[in-house]
Design a protein around this nucleic acid. Structure first.
Length: 197
DNA sequence: GGTTCGATCCTCT
DNA sequence: GAGGATCGAACCT
């Protein structure tokens, strides 16, 4: 079943962990592209120096200051995009960066399943930039409702036990002073599709 | 108007 | 582990 607004409108760390094992779906034309979320990071509040919101409200990060359940897509390094889902209450800037998907369908023909292929998973959607490239997400999708009919997350009944969740530091935020040490990155232990160990 | 640099990824060493 | 690709947001002057 599709996750509703209330799933996202709560503590960001809980949302990030809760998204593991859920399925992200993007309807692109007539195709439905699906991936199982295996890695996510939390970005919480104005005080999180790793977050775009730490420098205050700007045109780019505006969506992070809005209510939960909308997506924040931004361009990074001039060539990649990153997908975030906004969490928590309006005026509190927070979001979960979706960092890796396990591909469960053949990318060339989404109606057929992909055979379990660890290598292909790594190549396709292990990392936030690759994930957006795979799904076809760009800034056009910025602000989209994550509970709508174009892009959403489904619970397909899988439960990830706490012991199977690895909690560690976030990637690529060395500039964030003490905040770089927060263990706000979560991934499914043993998954072949996480971006980095 | 100019400069800096990034929530990345790939290639080469 | 280092460096390049590539560009727009953010922050100067």
């Amino acid at each position: 079943m599709k996750l509703s607004k209330s799933f996202y409108d709560r503590d960001t760390l809980k949302v990030a962990q809760g998204l593991l094992g859920k399925h992200l779906i993007f309807k692109r034309g007539r195709k439905k592209i699906v991936g199982r979320i295996v890695e996510a990071e939390a970005y919480c509040g104005l005080d999180d120096l790793a977050s775009h919101a730490s420098r205050g409200r700007t045109e780019r990060n505006e969506i992070m200051f809005g209510p939960a359940g909308f997506v924040y897509v931004y361009m990074i390094y001039g060539m990649y995009h990153c997908l975030n889902i906004v969490t928590e209450r309006k005026n509190y800037p927070a979001a979960v960066l979706i960092r890796a998907l396990e591909i469960i369908q053949n990318p060339k023909n989404p109606s057929t399943p992909l055979r379990a292929d660890k290598k292909q998973n790594k190549i396709i959607a292990a990392g936030p930039g690759k994930l957006c490239r795979y799904l076809g997400l760009t800034k056009k999708q910025n602000g989209l409702d994550i509970t709508g009919d174009t892009l959403w997350v489904e619970d397909r009944g899988e439960k990830i036990a706490p012991k199977d969740v690895v909690k560690t530091t976030r990637i690529g935020v060395d500039y964030a002073k003490h905040c770089k040490d927060h263990k706000w990155r979560f991934y499914i232990k043993g998954s072949p599709s996480v971006s980095k160990k």
